[in-house]
Design a binder for these strands. Structure first.
Lengths: 115, 115
DNA sequence: TTGACATTAAACCATATGGTTTTACAAAAA
DNA sequence: TTTTTGTAAAACCATATGGTTTAATGTCAA
């Protein structure tokens, strides 16, 4: 019952569950960065940042291309989309709530005295 | 730089990074369940399931009401919505890709010989 | 009141995680 | 060629995690 897509979601959500890794994604959302450019933004060693990048890469959230001694990292949106779609499967739960709220507001507009 | 909403996302994504916990959410998406009803669905002890539920509860993904000796668990969509919205912040990355693909397909429709 | 039931608490264990420092290596610069 | 630079690999450490088993607790049923 634990299939491949399960394991992929495990890796994606686990990768997203760390604030440093989310911040790295945020930087990569601006533009491609070498690991050495990412590292100074964090209060941890470059080695630690490198390991975070590897985790993101393993989860499919980041791709890397090596140019000389620099490893250029780029956001890969596909994994983010996967997670987004999985969560979207629950959308009806919150939109039901929003619908209820909306209906209530509508009601209030039609009967402003709250009758 | 690690504020409250950061920690909330940590907890939410961490809670989602486990297949048992995601399966529990799946069951709760059907209807409210007592912990004792959830447990037989998994090949682990009831104690372990109880701890998973606590993790989900701590992340705000599940609420619990106690009725006699049963603890009734219900999905709380708000935390899921939070995660969904965070991911939605990256939507432009995959929609850009989809837009490009769409444009390409449009092009192919207009010039079916691939010129 | 006694006993069964649903759940939590506590103690424990193996492994995973996020960090460190040190070592290694390939590429660019001197 | 030698040195410096960017990154990974390896070894290590403390703590977190997901599981177990064994009490402890409160609630329903005989």
């Amino acid at each position: 019952m634990v299939d491949r897509s399960d394991q992929r979601l495990d890796a994606i959500f686990h990768a997203l569950a760390d604030p440093t890794r989310r911040a790295i994604l945020g930087m990569l959302a601006q533009r491609e960065h070498a690991i050495g450019e990412l590292a100074p933004a964090f209060p941890i060693s470059g080695v630690a940042v490198s390991k975070h990048v590897r985790t993101l890469e393993a989860a499919g959230l980041v791709t890397r291309r090596v140019r000389g001694r620099s490893h250029l990292c780029r956001l890969d949106p596909v994994a983010l989309l996967e997670a987004h779609r999985w969560l979207g499967g629950y959308q009806r739960f919150w939109s039901e709530r929003l619908d209820a709220l909306e209906a209530l507001l509508e009601e209030m507009k039609r009967e402003p005295d709250g009758r």
